[in-house]
């Protein structure tokens, strides 16, 4: 059998890759995809815990995380389209109009 912490190590690694992508990449869409990667790595650890503890609440939480991620993707991509229409770029270094 595979111990629980193998799944947690994989989840931690994927989460860190997502964090690195958000911090290093400049393309807004790639940053957004890295956020999806982080959501998925947390989903993996939730399902692993759910399965090893025998509690369905983890799987329910993943179900709701997926719903929120779908809503977030739709709204976030609409924001990126609106930004691109105004500034002709998706470089997050040039999108600084909210910066004081």
């Amino acid at each position: 059998m595979i111990p629980l912490n193998f799944y947690l190590i994989l989840s931690a690694f994927m989460f860190c890759v997502g964090v690195l992508g958000v911090l290093v990449r400049r393309n807004a869409i790639v940053v957004f995809m890295c956020i999806e990667l982080m959501l998925n790595s947390v989903n993996l650890s939730l399902i692993a815990f759910s399965s090893y503890l025998g509690d369905p609440t983890g799987q329910m939480l993943v179900f709701f995380v997926m719903t929120v991620a779908a809503a977030e993707a739709a709204v976030g991509l609409a924001i990126i389209i609106a930004l691109f229409r105004n500034k002709q770029t998706v470089n997050i270094d040039e999108i600084n109009i909210l910066k004081w």
Partner: peptide
């Protein structure tokens, strides 16, 4: 937690 719970199979 070296192995999955006994009722994991019917839980999914």
């Amino acid at each position: 937690f070296t192995s999955q719970s006994a009722n994991a199979a019917q839980m999914g």
